[in-house]
């Protein structure tokens, strides 16, 4: 009787401890971002928490800093180019990997998903070298190509996962009803892939916008992207303006999260 009680007690304590660590982790995941957002409205000119006042001054200063605005445009451009390239290259590749009927289909999947294993810093340095051999200097173009190469595997993976779950019978039904291959793609496969395509686009955009590991080696000298600018800002500026830039980035990620959760659904994302 007392033995059973003892087990129940240790069980309760053990589970409570696990829950406590879990809640602590969740707090540690969220709190830093909230602190940054709070600080970005502080009236003091140095960074401290909790803030003592409320002002939009640091955001005003942010928008009055031409290097930051320029960097945002560069990142936006890179994000859009990367997304476009990953869509154009990734979606057809995912289809070939899943629906293809040719020898070496498995090898193809391994090859196109391999970049995922190559660290960004290594890829960035390698592409910088390759560019330097053919006189292709770092630029928005080179940066976009490099980041697209780095993140393409993610787009392919998301689309492949969705495609694997699409019943082949739907495509057969379409063909049986008189649709050509292209019509089947246009009217059945593509609409049903849209959630994955949106999610993939969101991820590739954010990587194009935010990536630093590849970008720092491949960005143009006059076209510094936001993460590169932010990196030096964090090291050199200790006013809450850095927090304002960060808060703006957090806002962007919340928007992206909304896109992903309303298209693919958060649960499906994680399979």
């Amino acid at each position: 009787m007392s033995g059973a009680k003892k087990i129940a007690l240790t069980d309760r304590i053990g589970v409570a401890a696990i829950y406590a660590i879990g809640l602590l982790s969740l707090a540690l995941l969220v709190a830093p971002s909230l602190i940054v957002v709070a600080i970005s409205f502080d009236t003091r000119s140095y960074v401290s928490f909790p803030p003592v006042g409320f002002t939009f001054d640091w955001y005003a200063k942010l928008f009055a800093t031409p290097e930051l605005i320029q960097a945002m445009w560069v990142s936006l451009k890179v994000g859009l180019i990367v997304t476009g390239m990953c869509l154009a290259l990734g979606v057809p590749t995912a289809i070939a990997c899943v629906r293809g009927r040719f020898k070496g289909r498995q090898a193809l999947s391994v090859f196109v998903l391999f970049p995922h294993m190559v660290p960004g810093i290594v890829l960035g340095i390698a592409i910088l070298f390759a560019g330097a051999t053919i006189n292709a200097r770092p630029s928005i173009g080179l940066q976009s190509l490099a980041v697209a190469c780095f993140i393409l595997a993610v787009m392919i993976r998301i689309v492949m996962a969705r495609l694997m779950r699409l019943d082949v019978a739907l495509e057969e039904a379409s063909a049986n009803l008189g649709a050509t291959r292209f019509q089947t793609f246009r009217h059945v496969v593509l609409p049903l892939l849209m959630p994955a395509i949106w999610a993939g686009a969101a991820f590739t955009f954010i990587e194009g916008f935010d990536n630093i590991s590849v970008a720092i080696f491949t960005h143009g000298h006059r076209d510094r992207p936001l993460p590169v600018e932010l990196m030096s800002l964090v090291q050199n500026d200790n006013t809450p303006m850095v927090a304002a830039v960060s808060a703006a980035q957090i806002a962007l990620s919340v928007v992206i999260l909304g896109v992903v959760s309303s298209t693919l659904g958060l649960e499906k994302l994680n399979d």
Binding site: M85, A88, L89, G90, P92, T93, I95, A96, C97, R99, G100, R101, F102, G104, L108, F111, V112, F114, P115, V118, V122, L123, I125, A126, I127, F129, A130, T133, L145, A146, A148, C149, L152, I156, R181, F185
Partner: peptide, 30 residues
């Protein structure tokens, strides 16, 4: 055109060859 072939993957394979395989080989050679 039958949609079961390798060809939809050709652009990506070419892209990755130019931007990943060749640069990594160059890196190794350097």
């Amino acid at each position: 055109a039958n949609g079961r072939g390798f060809w939809p993957a050709i652009p990506a394979v070419a892209f990755l060859t130019v931007l990943m395989v060749i640069p990594l080989v160059l890196l190794l050679s350097f």
